[in-house]
Nucleic acid binder design. Structure first.
Length: 914
DNA sequence: CTAAAGGTCTTTTTT
DNA sequence: AGACCTTTAG
């Protein structure tokens, strides 16, 4: 790899703090990766001394893959790389808080939709009532205000009115009471503890020597606060970003942190990476013509250093009278360019451009519909990931109808008609049987809460109506890009299962009649418009299709061909929004730098800049008059037209370019698997598909959480022993109080489980504490990098070294609780996976795997020898499996023994395909 | 030219 | 559902 002078010096600046301003296409990820390797090359630096924050999980996976690859090439086989943290701020915080403060082990995270359900459920306790906001109607705004107060800074001298102080307090207390984090609290709890908890501080800061923060321009006050606290370890800090690409100010990002970094930290080297290797000279000129109109930016230039040659006609700006003509131009241009020569890398082979090389970048989702129709009319495949029509799909309407029927809103015949509309292949008598089965489950006032189980009803309906995937196969009807129609339907049914789970996880203990009514309201008012269609969630494969996405989503990506349609005033830049806002409840003056939450022309211009700089070679900017609001040309369009590279041409001619076979860019996306997902795959690839791809969630049961609870109790014992504490007289009552979390049970059941846990833990401690000195690891995270972007994560419960009459034997122990484990059979693959995991961790081989059954009556062990000769075999097997997953080769192929005990059998009916 | 009428109205990450 | 922008009427 050849590096420029600046890249080289960025890579080798590891003594000073470092601020890297990297323009678009500057090879940022490569530079960060190589710098991390240089850091690790130092004798006194171990992987555990390094933390690297990225903005998204996807970026994390990419960076991790890249770093591991470079490490393998330059450092050979070094151990413990899993200890180097590369990931998002949120997931690091969660890990830090749960690893060090054990009571947080039982906490789970509320995402947006669950947060809304939670707040509505506890409306009276959570502070919303007392600030005069309306249940349901104002919930979204209330949550926005909570996020603002907790993640932004207040203006100097401002003190929140008491009712708001109270609201924040009640909100957080209610979350704690039910053992929930929201995304903000994950970070604020860590900061709180870093400031006040000495042990926590020592544990977290003790190892930290190098901190890297990517996308630093989009850091918000809480995150900066965290970084500040981490910097007190005197670690070396490197921040990387581009102030011109700040996109999330409305989510409290603040550019000032990157702009003023060198004033806030000492010994800062400041390096600008101003060479763009991505785009042609024309693209870069257009981008510069746009961004230089912004006044608030760090001084910098951008040099065209890539190999893409500009040709006249590469960059076009066209204006049309109506949207149809505008969209038609887009569709026809895609067809014209398909198959034309393109060279990805300098000196690399040429290939023919294909659909997936095109991106259509939008400011608003509303714009997508007409474009999608036009592409469909031209038979151009496309993928969209934000337009929401899930609730218009027949299979979702039919699923919803099951509950409308139970609520007596519709008749049996109507429900039947809904399902018949999904597919003609569903047998009438099967639906009858299904309806009969579920009508027995209609809620009544006397019914016990857990008897009315929404998910269980869904699964029963699928089973009794014999709705296995094959039923929906239909050669006549097309599915959506790369998916057959039966897959699309099953993706959506899986999504519905997740919707049920979101609702049920908050409302499981409601009275059946209200649970049902609440669920229907949830579907109608909240869920509709929130959930994407299921098939869009498939993160394992990228189909060869035109990508329609927002500019935000295109952050960090690049495409040979980019379209930016709709360049009108009020669209880009967007007009200021109306409607009821959070400012109807709170004052703008309270919030520091409040202006950055408002629409600003400079922020919008940055969006346009990001859109332009995604392109490697072809850029098509278009506009047309659409409606009352979209009549005038965007000022940005005028700015960019000043570039000499931009022409207007409604019928560009590319016939002089060489035609090659259209070939999509080969890109093996990073794939992260874990032991339990792999186990599902090894049992039956289709089972993996149902769980991990389609996303079906098993019904909630009252006693759920028992396994984790006992697990966490034992973990704390082991960890405290490893920390040098004598745990033989540990207070088990306290452990039980801290760790037992059974959210779906009544108090009677809960007490019962606490007692059981107490008995099990007491017996375990009594029988085993003498052997605690043999413990090598407790709850050890492992990571296996198999190359080609394939990564496997796993946790090992306990690793012991036992002396068997002079022979030392390493045993990996896996705790099982009878009530929760689905299947006790240990498979050969599972054994080999553990052996592999231990080898990756220590470089040594382990001898045995022990399944330790934690049972109320007595503990029982079952030990098996690990076959270390099978390690290479299992590696191969995992790689093959990962590729099968990427290629969607997920057939129903399990031996009857596995099939008969499989929990997902209800969904697939054990029917084998073909 | 002003006043009234009418049309249209975001972006999304984090386990 | 209130605010903002554009068009139209006079």
């Amino acid at each position: 790899m050849q590096y420029t002078k600046e890249q080289h010096s960025a890579i080798n600046t590891i003594k000073d703090n470092l601020q890297i301003i990297a323009c678009a296409g500057a090879g940022k990820t490569q530079v960060i990766s190589q710098r991390l390797v240089e850091v690790l090359k130092q004798k006194d630096v171990e992987p555990i001394n390094v933390i690297a924050f990225t903005y998204t999980e996807k970026a994390a996976a990419e960076l991790k893959t890249r770093v591991l690859k470079l490490c393998r090439e330059q450092l050979g086989d070094i151990k413990g790389l899993a200890d180097m943290y590369i990931g998002t701020i949120h997931s690091w915080c969660l890990q830090a808080i749960q690893d060090n403060i054990f009571k947080y082990q039982k906490y789970s995270i509320l995402d947006d939709i669950k947060q809304k359900l939670f707040v509505d459920k506890y409306y009276n306790f959570i502070g919303m009532a007392s600030v005069g906001m309306d249940r349901y109607k104002d919930t979204g705004r209330f949550l926005a205000i909570m996020a603002l107060f907790r993640e932004a800074e207040l203006n100097e001298g401002v003190k929140l009115p008491e009712e708001w102080e109270e609201a924040v307090k009640s909100y957080e207390e209610t979350l704690h009471k039910h053992s929930y984090f929201d995304f903000t609290m994950i970070m604020t709890e860590v900061i709180k503890n870093l400031k006040s908890n000495k042990d926590f501080q020592d544990n977290v800061l003790g190892n930290l020597k190098y901190l890297v923060v990517d996308e630093y321009q989009d850091v918000n006050p809480v995150q900066e606060n965290l970084i500040e606290e981490l910097s007190k370890s005197n670690c070396n800090i490197c921040v990387v970003g581009d102030d011109d690409q700040t996109l999330y100010e409305w989510r409290l990002s603040d550019v000032k942190y990157i702009q003023q970094f060198k004033e806030r930290y000492k010994d800062v080297s400041y390096i600008k990476l101003e060479d763009n290797f991505r785009s042609s000279k024309g693209i870069i000129d257009a981008a510069i013509k746009c961004i230089t109109n912004n006044t608030q930016r760090l001084p910098k230039i951008m040099n065209a250093k890539g190999h893409q040659r500009f040709r006249d006609g590469d960059i076009i700006y066209n204006q049309y009278e109506d949207v149809e003509s505008e969209n038609q131009f887009i569709a026809e241009t895609i067809q014209k360019l398909r198959g034309k020569e393109f060279q990805d890398r300098n000196g690399g082979a040429k290939r023919g451009l294909d659909y997936s090389d095109c991106a259509i970048l939008l400011r608003t989702w509303k714009k997508a519909t007409s474009i999608m129709e036009m592409l469909a009319a031209h038979n151009i495949p496309f993928v969209v990931s934000g337009v929401n029509n899930l609730f218009e799909r027949p299979e979702i309407k039919a699923s919803k109808a099951i509950y409308q029927y139970l609520n007596n809103d519709i008749e049996e015949d109507t429900l039947k008609a809904y399902w018949e509309a999904v597919s003609e292949n569903i047998k009438s008598e099967d639906i009858d049987a299904a309806i009969e089965a579920i009508s027995k489950k209609k809620p009544n006032p006397k019914m016990y809460f857990s008897t009315f189980n929404i998910q269980e009803i869904f699964w029963t309906f699928i089973e009794k109506a014999k709705l296995s995937e094959e039923v929906f196969a239909d050669k006549e009807h097309e599915g959506i890009v790369g998916n057959d129609i039966n897959e699309v339907i099953y993706y959506n049914l899986g999504m519905f299962s997740q919707i049920i789970n979101d609702y049920a996880s908050i409302h499981f203990k409601d009275k059946p009649i209200w649970k049902l009514k609440g669920f229907l309201n949830f579907l109608r008012y909240s869920a509709d418009g929130y959930y994407p269609e299921g098939w869009l969630n498939n993160s394992y494969k990228t189909p060869n299709a035109v990508q329609i996405m927002t500019v935000y989503q295109s952050k960090g990506l690049e495409f040979p061909i980019v379209f930016v349609p709709g360049l009108n005033k009020n669209y880009l830049p967007i007009k200021r929004p109306g409607g009821k806002q959070i400012w109807h409840f709170i004052e703008r003056e309270w919030i520091k730098d409040q202006h950055r939450l408002e629409v600003s022309e400079e922020a919008e211009r940055r969006l346009f800049y990001v859109a332009i700089t995604r392109s490697q070679k072809y850029l098509f900017i278009t506009r047309s008059k659409e409606n009352r609001l979209y009549q005038k040309e965007s000022p940005f369009a005028k700015e960019v037209s000043n570039s000499d590279y931009i022409i207007s041409d409604k019928n560009p001619d590319y016939s002089h370019l060489e035609n090659l076979t259209p070939t999509p860019k080969k890109e093996a996306g990073a794939i992260q698997l874990n032991f339990s997902v792999l186990k599902a795959f090894f049992d039956c690839p289709y089972r993996f598909k149902l769980i991990s791809l389609y996303g079906f969630v098993s019904p909630i049961t009252e006693r759920m959480g028992y396994g984790n609870s006992i697990h966490n109790v034992l973990m704390e014992m082991h960890r405290r022993h490893l920390n040098g504490e004598d745990v033989s007289n540990i207070n088990i009552d306290e452990l039980v109080e801290n760790h037992v979390h059974i959210p779906y049970a009544t108090n009677i059941v809960l007490d019962n489980i606490k007692q059981t846990t107490n008995n099990v833990a007491t017996a375990y401690l009594e029988e085993n504490h003498k052997e605690f000195d043999n413990i090598e690891y407790a709850e050890q995270e492992i990571q296996i990098d198999l190359g080609d972007g394939i990564m496997v994560n796993g946790r090992m419960d306990l690793i012991k070294k036992i002396d068997l009459d002079g022979n030392e034997s390493t045993t990996i122990i896996d705790f099982k609780s009878k009530k929760e484990s689905q299947d006790q059979d240990i498979t050969m693959e599972q054994l080999s996976m553990y052996a592999l995991g231990y080898k990756e961790l220590t470089g040594k081989t382990a001898d045995r795997l022990q399944i330790f059954n934690l049972d109320e009556d007595r503990n029982s062990k079952h030990t098996q020898r690990l076959d270390n000769s099978k390690i290479d075999e299992i590696k191969e097997r995992i790689i093959t499996s990962a590729n099968d997953i990427r290629d969607n080769k997920l057939q129903k192929s399990c031996p009857p023994s596995t099939c008969n005990t499989c929990w997902q059998r209800q969904l697939c009916s054990g029917v084998k395909a073909n």
